[in-house]
């Protein structure tokens, strides 16, 4: 099983970049949208949400999803690596 490791790395990198490029796009556009929306909203929206700006909530939500996915993929990769080590050990024993 020589190829899965590179596969895993590739997947990891792809997902990582997808999330962070997406996140970056959001980060770039969020302030603009916020500024634009600030005029449109007329007071009554703030009654419940007082002080926390919407962009921060949206950012936090998106950030958490990215974070959770990346952590999980990393944990699968780590478990896969551990299995790989086990296989190596078995192979070594076989060679003896």
């Amino acid at each position: 099983m020589p190829d899965w490791k590179t596969d895993m790395k590739r997947i990891f990198v792809i997902l990582f970049f997808a999330f962070f490029l997406g996140g970056a796009a959001l980060a770039q556009e969020a302030p603009k949208k916020d500024a634009e929306g600030f005029e449109a909203v007329n007071g009554d929206m703030m009654q419940s949400g007082e002080s926390i700006p919407g962009s921060r909530l949206v950012g936090a939500a998106y950030g958490f999803i990215c974070f959770a996915m990346v952590v999980w993929v990393a944990s699968v990769a780590r478990r896969a690596r551990r299995l790989e080590d086990e296989v190596d050990e078995l192979k070594k024993k076989l060679a003896r």
Binding site: G37, A40, G54, L57
Partner: peptide, 9 residues
């Protein structure tokens, strides 16, 4: 209209 940006969540 009512929720603004937060609706994007």
């Amino acid at each position: 209209t009512t929720m603004g940006l937060v609706q994007k969540i």
